[in-house]
Amino acid sequence: MNKSDDNERLEEEEEEEEEEEELSSVGQEKTNNQTVQQSNDDESKLQHDLANELKHTLKIPITDELPNIGPTPYKVAIVGMNELGSATAFLLICRQVVTDIIIIDKNSKRLAAEYADLSTCTTFVSGVNIQASNQLASCEGARVVILCDVSDDDDDHDHEKQQKSTTVPSSNPHEKLLFNFKITSRAISHYASDCVMIIAVQPFEVMTQLCAANSMIPSYRIIAPGTMIDSAHFRLLISEKLDISPASITGIMIGGHGHNNLPLWNSITVGGIHLLSENTSIGTSHDKENWHQLHRNVNQRQEDVIKIKGTEVWSISMASSELVECILRNKREIHTVTVNIKDHYGVKTDLFLSIPAIISQNGVSHLITMNLANHQNENEFASIIQNIETTIKEKLKNI
């Protein structure tokens, strides 16, 4: 074998070795890629599992039922055209989230005047149609019904009123109001059985409970603004204390609207910073910054408004219109609304009070689990539950 043949053989062997090394390198790279991919898949699965765990820990499902949306999915009915009903209709017109608003009232003169005034407002916006009726049957097809007034303030003749009065409790005005509410809510559920009903009549806890007991609407589709209003007052007073816009502040109150409310101090954030981490004694009697005074101020502020105006017209109507938008647009926002907490927080029977809930096209889709932070909050909340239960039983015992 000559030298030339030896060189060729060596070159062939070198080429074979290079090919083997290249194949080995490709195989190793493929193995590494598979390992990396497996690692990424494992990490992605872990993150997905953790996200699902948080999702199920954070939210308590109430219903996944899809609403039976009729031919007018953006129709809202407002029952009772008192100041509250009128303000609610006006805010819905301004929000432009509805296509049809039906205002309902037994007093034909008041109804005609409100219709004339509100229908003029619709000329300044587009796509909102308003109608008036004195019949609850007009609620049919409404996606949301807002109950603002059930007083027996019609314009019938005196002898007709006297005949009607024999069918309702006559001596106690409060019992008469509850009786009218019971009859009205039952009739609404007959004509608009697929609606979400927003109760704007106070006391919210009593009225939602009465509605749930006497209507055919599932309890998760019966809500009231509740401590949405207290929470708004709370955030406003925090913003005034810190001289920061309330838009940059979170903070909620739960329980009952008014003196049965409970501030959750651990829920307060300012620009994403938890105030509890900056002041561990916030809201307690040991707090040198006197934050617990804000709770008293919230209740005093509401008392002052009611004493002078009779009711918190604009606060309730704004909260109600916000809930309407959440429902019609399926926004799934969290609000502290009056809802049924049966089977939660140790409650075994129907009981309506305010806790954070996700508001969707169904009404309430989920309740949000709350961190009551300490035994003091737990005890206070348990006491509030007991107070509200007692109040509801007392108010409804003769109805």
Rank of each mutant, 00 (worst) to 15 (best):
137 A>L: 09
127 G>C: 03
129 N>I: 05
126 S>D: 10
149 D>E: 13
168 V>P: 00
146 I>D: 07
130 I>Y: 08
134 N>I: 00
149 D>H: 07
156 D>A: 09
147 L>V: 15
168 V>Q: 08
156 D>L: 14
139 C>V: 10
137 A>E: 15
133 S>E: 07
141 G>P: 12
161 K>F: 00
174 H>T: 11
166 T>P: 00
170 S>A: 14
159 H>Y: 15
171 S>D: 14
152 D>I: 02
149 D>V: 03
138 S>K: 13
140 E>M: 11
168 V>C: 12
154 D>S: 00
148 C>H: 00
142 A>D: 04
147 L>D: 01
163 Q>I: 12
133 S>H: 05
158 D>A: 03
144 V>P: 04
139 C>G: 06
162 Q>G: 01
162 Q>T: 03
164 K>F: 07
142 A>Q: 03
171 S>C: 09
172 N>P: 03
136 L>I: 13
139 C>H: 06
132 A>P: 07
148 C>F: 03
142 A>M: 07
153 D>R: 01
167 T>L: 06
170 S>G: 12
148 C>M: 07
164 K>R: 14
150 V>F: 02
169 P>S: 14
174 H>L: 12
157 H>A: 09
166 T>C: 04
157 H>Q: 09
139 C>F: 08
158 D>V: 02
155 D>Q: 06
171 S>T: 13
163 Q>W: 09
171 S>F: 12
140 E>S: 15
160 E>H: 05
170 S>C: 09
128 V>D: 13
144 V>S: 11
149 D>C: 12
174 H>I: 11
126 S>K: 14
159 H>G: 02
131 Q>M: 11
162 Q>A: 09
159 H>Q: 05
136 L>W: 11
129 N>R: 11
173 P>A: 15
143 R>T: 11
127 G>F: 01
143 R>Y: 05
141 G>R: 08
132 A>N: 06
174 H>G: 05
161 K>C: 00
168 V>E: 04
132 A>T: 05
169 P>G: 08
153 D>F: 00
145 V>D: 04
144 V>H: 08
174 H>E: 13
142 A>N: 05
157 H>F: 15
167 T>A: 06
170 S>D: 10
173 P>L: 14
130 I>E: 10
128 V>R: 09
146 I>M: 10
127 G>S: 02
147 L>G: 01
140 E>T: 08
152 D>W: 04
143 R>E: 07
152 D>Y: 04
169 P>H: 10
168 V>Y: 08
148 C>R: 00
168 V>G: 02
162 Q>Y: 02
129 N>F: 09
138 S>P: 07
168 V>I: 13
134 N>T: 03
142 A>C: 10
135 Q>V: 06
127 G>Y: 02
162 Q>H: 04
130 I>H: 08
131 Q>A: 14
149 D>G: 06
127 G>K: 03
144 V>E: 12
144 V>Q: 11
129 N>K: 13
148 C>N: 07
155 D>Y: 02
151 S>N: 10
